[in-house]
Measured scan of single mutants.
Amino acid sequence: MTEYKLVVVGAGGVGKSALTIQLIQNHFVDEYDPTIEDSYRKQVVIDGETCLLDILDTAGQEEYSAMRDQYMRTGEGFLCVFAINNTKSFEDIHHYREQIKRVKDSEDVPMVLVGNKCDLPSRTVDTKQAQDLARSYGIPFIETSAKTRQGVDDAFYTLVREIRKHKEKMSKDGKKKKKKSKTKCVIM
């Protein structure tokens, strides 16, 4: 069974824990209790493949930012979460993405942009803004509501699919490099 290491990042209060708990335990946590770091595991079937999701729910508070490099190193894919009623959390996505790329030393890291709290009427981040940002990053965008469960499975499952595509691409690139290195030079 394939294991996928997913990391949920975003500013404090955007609903990272609520999304994760909704996926794992099928219930909505409405009281806000700032996370330092929590880890969850769940076995699911995605596109006919049974897999184990190892999900790291991270601290959004700035005082825990020193811990970010460590979990970013171990993560295979990242859910970059903002709240649709919090423009600052949307603007912060850029910083999370840049930090992930720096730590992973790669421009090509599996990510999904997630606009959470889409059940709320007080939207300050337009869907088109988020779609445009995701398009500019070359990553999928999904709106979710941890409260109603809308888009929750889709967000995590899409990230797994992005990781699969990335692994497939990397193995193809690896095979191309191996083929090239088999060419021999004969000096007579």
Score class of each variant (00 low, 15 high):
Ala66Trp: 15
Phe141Gly: 13
Glu162Leu: 08
Val45Trp: 06
Ala130Lys: 12
Val160Ser: 12
Phe82Leu: 09
Tyr32Phe: 01
Cys80Val: 07
Gln70Glu: 04
Tyr96Gly: 03
Lys182Glu: 12
Tyr71Glu: 15
Lys16Gln: 00
Ile163Asn: 02
Glu76Lys: 03
Thr58Pro: 01
His166Val: 09
Asn116Tyr: 01
Asn116Glu: 13
Asp69Ile: 05
Ala155Phe: 14
Val114His: 02
Glu31Ala: 15
Ile100Phe: 08
Glu3Trp: 06
His27Met: 15
Ala59Val: 00
Tyr32Lys: 00
Ile55Glu: 00
Asp69Lys: 05
Met111Glu: 02
Thr183Ile: 11
Lys167Asp: 06
Leu23Trp: 12
Ala59Ile: 00
Phe28Ala: 01
Gly12Thr: 12
Leu53Pro: 08
Lys178Arg: 09
Glu107Arg: 08
His166Ile: 08
Gly151Ala: 08
Gly48Ser: 10
Glu107Trp: 06
Lys172His: 09
Val152Gly: 09
Ile36Asn: 00
Asp154Tyr: 05
Ile55Val: 14
Leu56Thr: 04
Glu63Asp: 11
Lys179Glu: 05
Met72Phe: 05
Gly15Ser: 01
Lys128Asn: 06
Asn116Ser: 11
Lys5Gln: 10
Val114Tyr: 02
Arg102Tyr: 07
Met72His: 06
Glu31Leu: 15
Asn85Asp: 05
Asp154Val: 06
Cys51Ala: 12
Asp108Trp: 04
Ser122Ala: 10
Thr2Leu: 09
Val29Met: 07
Ala59Ser: 13
Asp33Lys: 02
Asp105Ser: 11
Glu63Lys: 07
Leu53Phe: 10
Gly138His: 03
Asp30Gln: 12
Gly75Trp: 05
Leu159Phe: 02
Arg123Glu: 10
Thr74Trp: 13
Asp108His: 11
Val8Arg: 02
Leu120Met: 10
Thr50Cys: 07
Asp105Val: 03
Asp33Cys: 01
Leu113Thr: 02
Leu23Cys: 14
Gln131Asn: 10
Lys182Val: 03
Tyr64His: 03
Lys117Ala: 15
Asp153Pro: 06
Tyr64Asp: 02
Thr127Pro: 06
Val152Cys: 05
Val186Trp: 05
Asp126Thr: 08
Val44His: 09
Ser65Ala: 14
Lys117His: 13
Phe78Ile: 04
Val160Gly: 07
Leu120Gly: 13
Lys177Gly: 10
Ile187Ser: 14
Val8Gly: 04
Thr20Ala: 03
Lys169His: 15
Gly115Thr: 13
Tyr4Gln: 11
Asp108Val: 07
Asp54Trp: 13
Glu162Trp: 09
Phe28Asn: 00
Ala59Asn: 02
Leu53Glu: 06
Glu168Arg: 08
Pro110Asn: 04
Val14Arg: 14
Ile187Leu: 11
Thr58Trp: 00
Leu19Lys: 13
Lys128Gly: 06
